[in-house]
Design a protein around this nucleic acid. Sequence first.
RNA 1: GCAUCCUUAGCUCAAUUGGAUAGAGUACCGGACUUCGAAUCCGUUGGUUGUGGGUUCGAGUCCCACAGGAUGCACCA
Length: 617
Amino acid sequence: MLKKSGTAVNSSLSLMTKGFFILRAILNWMFKHEKLASPIDNLANIGGNMKDLKVMIAALLAEHIPTDVMTEQEISELVEYPKNVEMGDYAFPCFKLAKAYRKSPKIIAEEISELIKDHNMFTEVTPIAGFINFKINAGALAEIVIPTVLKEKEHYGSSDMGQNKKIIVEYSSVNIAKPFHMGHIRSTMIGESLHRIYDFLGYDTVAINHLGDYGTQFGKLIVAYKKWGSEEAIKANPIPELLSIYVKFHQEAEEHPELEDEARAWFTKLENKDEEAVRLWTLFRDMSLVSFNRVYGKLGVTFDSYAGESFYSDKMPVILSELRSKNLLQKSEGAEIVDLEPYGMPPALITKKDGSSLYMTRDLAAAKYRKDTYDFDKNIYVVGSAQRLHFQQWFKVVELMGYEWAKDCVHVDFGMVALEEGSLSTRKGNVVFLEDVLDKATEKTLEIINEKNPDLENKETVAQQVGIGAVVFQELYTSRIKDYAFSWSKTLSFEGETGPYVQYTHARACSVLRKVGEFDENQIDYSVLSDDASKEVIKSLYKFNEVVVLAQKNNEPHTVARYAVEIAQNFNRFYHDNAIIVDDETTKNARLALVKAVEIALRNVLKLVCLEAPEKM
RNA sequence: GCAUCCUUAGCUCAAUUGGAUAGAGUACCGGACUUCGAAUCCGUUGGUUGUGGGUUCGAGUCCCACAGGAUGCACCA
């Protein structure tokens, strides 16, 4: 018999694989002992795990495909969703079987379909051009999915796959005393969303804001403050005031270069824990954090730690001596480097000529500290793609230091945000402040509410939830890696594939449920839900966990954001095609159950992309 | 110069990680509110997936070359 040669056994997914085999074993046992009336009842016992239908189809196919031709897991990995719904809900391509069977995929598909077509799990099993297409029984699927959603509520879609695994996510990492601008939204929101996704999957997460709170610029700030600043002004308006004295410093320093020396001296004092220097630095840091936290509050972003550059300032000598004792450092042009030429990379610069440390040294010290402190399973950095080489370099240095956890460090990179007029840069004054964007979006939302729903209570709160939701959702709706140009008109649009669209759909579902009040969730005839529109909604709901796991695997929140729109679109179509509040109790209750399940799923999915789910808007 | 990433409908973006006829939104045009929320829904139009090769049953996806754009490459972070 033919064996697949050179197929690597996937060892990294041992947990998932184990789960797979356990599940498989249970299924086999149950089938053999006829404990179950149908495979679908079997699913109901398993709960809301999205992978199960694929697994079941694979199990069914495996009964007719010898293991030495293709293992059940290989089959399972090939099961997919057809491009076109008309063809079916699941599909299996038979092309890889052709060699072993010495038959055309078309004929294989036909033969296998014939063997399994009477299965009560499907309404149709059709061979088309080498694919076996499965149409699932919508009512039966609803009977599994909807009660699961109603029962699991805010946990629906979650899992415990990350149990006892520690994940560090570093994101946002803004600079003290500098404006929080539109360019910072990416790291901040991608990071926060990943934070929530990992949490939802049962991981133990630590969210770190690696503040830019150290360096010679603080010497400059101290000098500027002593000459032109005041505590009152800074407390009243921290960032603009700090920025303005910082800018003034640079202007004055052009004519009076001695200011630079003064600044260096003050930074040295700061490093030596001079009382006044530390007091001022603390003031700048605390005041900056007050205004940053206002923005984080609006965005719903939270951190477990703000340990930034200053925190690691005393942890670098240890790393340096470790690099030295491991013979990794070389002198080069007066500086100290780690040679990475064998790995096709430019040298990693570790110390300057004057012996002081650099960015790279800090990241090394921070990573080591985090491993020692948290013993992470994965250490994620949500930082722009401009720093790709930097991360590759120091990950390699960690590896050369002999730490096996180098492989657990991940750079989650993303493209640049530009303005339509050019790049976003504080120095050029080419800045859009993030908070201005959030406020403007809120303002516009309030106008829309006043127009559409003037009697709404808590208008301001809702306007903030929806307006900011629009900005955040837009940010998370596309894949990370691409650059994009910030555009007011796009940011302030609330129709189509937007956050407000999803929120509106949620509010609409709430509205129906509010109108009806209580209904009996336990006596429901799910066969009512076998029309096409209902079926698509149920299928979307069923996918929840699979989508979240995919997002986690790729560290791509946009997978979840797009899923939110998918549920909303399917629900709106259902809503339009079907009257929900009808006289016939059976129909009404079944549809209400669906509405309630959608409401729960939308609330959960919105939370993962950091959006609120207002009940009215 | 070297390296990495990006290029899909007029515009903004997807595409189950190599599967079937490449999909949405937006814009344009045309329909649907005395009835559960019209921030909604339905329909029409829109494509040589930057170009040229290769790999294979099968390529937007993998490989090579080229073009355009972005980013990085020694003392900033």
